[in-house]
């Protein structure tokens, strides 16, 4: 790969065709960043005009300017709520990783465990969380624990299923080689199966990051209790009751941004861990 790069930079007398291709690549690169920004600006502009021209009252649709000023004005309330939601989300994600990877390792080590428990993991996954959540809040006293349990239920399955798939995807010849060299179960797990599973696990992790946020928000809706220590979802509900639509939008924006930041962060971690060897992290020329 590095050889190819050296060659292209060393060659100076390229023909028009190649120059055109390079220009197209450059435009592609710039477009990747500028186009979404342009779309955003146009959308905000028409949103604003729509509200002004039609004289829509702010309790039906606030303009972007009002949403932004509300975001600034209500920042103390919203930021506290964000911290609560974020805390639940990250804790749920951590527990999902521990639980998902732990179960996956257990399943691949023991067929009996897998046969006994896998169907129930699937059932937990396919049952909508909004249907289970009310029950959870009846039986679990601590609100935080209840929220955490809901978010975990939503988030752990992609980690479990992806990691299980990864652990079973180790190269068969390498498995044979490990057997020939008399590797123990632990060695095979540590040196062969876990590294093989890493790209699969990281794929599951990125999905789980988004899902734990969704799980946390849905659980807050269901829990529905207010007061100190309530998260963004509750703030949205509350603002809805009070017809404070600008604050609803502001909270919604915060949730969306949080989701994007979590996804980007996990993608970055994934890139760091895989960049040296995995196909998904390698740049290809041409």
């Amino acid at each position: 790969m590095s050889i190819v790069e050296e060659n292209t930079s060393a060659v100076s007398d390229v023909d028009d065709e190649e120059l055109r291709r390079r220009r197209a690549r450059k435009i592609d690169k710039i477009g990747k960043w500028t186009l979404p920004v342009v779309v955003l600006v146009i959308t905000l502009f028409f949103w604003d005009r729509l509200v002004v021209w039609n004289e829509i009252p702010h309790y039906i649709l606030p303009g972007p300017g009002l949403v932004f000023s509300t975001l600034v004005a209500d920042w103390p309330i919203l930021f506290d709520a964000l911290l609560v939601t974020l805390q639940i989300t990250l804790m749920a994600l951590a527990v999902a990783v521990i639980g998902g990877v732990g179960l996956a390792v257990l399943f691949t080590q023991s067929r009996w465990m897998e046969m006994s428990f896998y169907p129930y993991a699937v059932i937990l996954q396919v049952t909508p969380i909004v249907a289970i959540a009310p029950l959870i809040f009846i039986y679990v006293d601590s609100r935080i624990a209840g929220l955490l349990l809901c978010a975990w239920l939503v988030a752990f399955f992609p980690v479990l299923s992806n990691t299980t798939l990864g652990l079973n995807s180790a190269d068969h010849n390498l498995r044979d080689l490990f057997r020939i060299y008399g590797a123990t179960r632990w060695q095979t797990l540590r040196f062969l199966q876990l590294p093989s599973a890493l790209p699969y696990f990281l794929g599951g992790l990125r999905i789980a990051g988004g899902l734990s946020l969704i799980g946390a928000v849905v659980a807050e809706y269901v829990a529905g209790t207010g007061g100190i220590g309530s998260g963004l979802a509750f703030r949205i509900l509350e603002a809805g009751y009070r017809l404070n639509i600008p604050r609803m939008f502001a909270a919604l924006i915060l949730i969306a941004v949080t989701g994007v930041v979590i996804f980007a962060g996990l993608s970055f971690i994934s890139h760091l861990l895989l960049r040296k060897w995995h196909e998904s992290a390698l740049k290809r020329e041409g």
Partner: peptide, 27 residues
């Protein structure tokens, strides 16, 4: 016993030296 398969069968996450280390590492 040493074995060479039809494919190189190397661990992609390990360097060349780490791959060659494997038979010893497992001991």
């Amino acid at each position: 016993l040493g074995v060479v398969f039809q494919e190189p069968t190397l661990m992609p996450w390990a360097t060349v030296a780490q791959n060659v280390w494997l038979p010893f590492r497992l001991r």
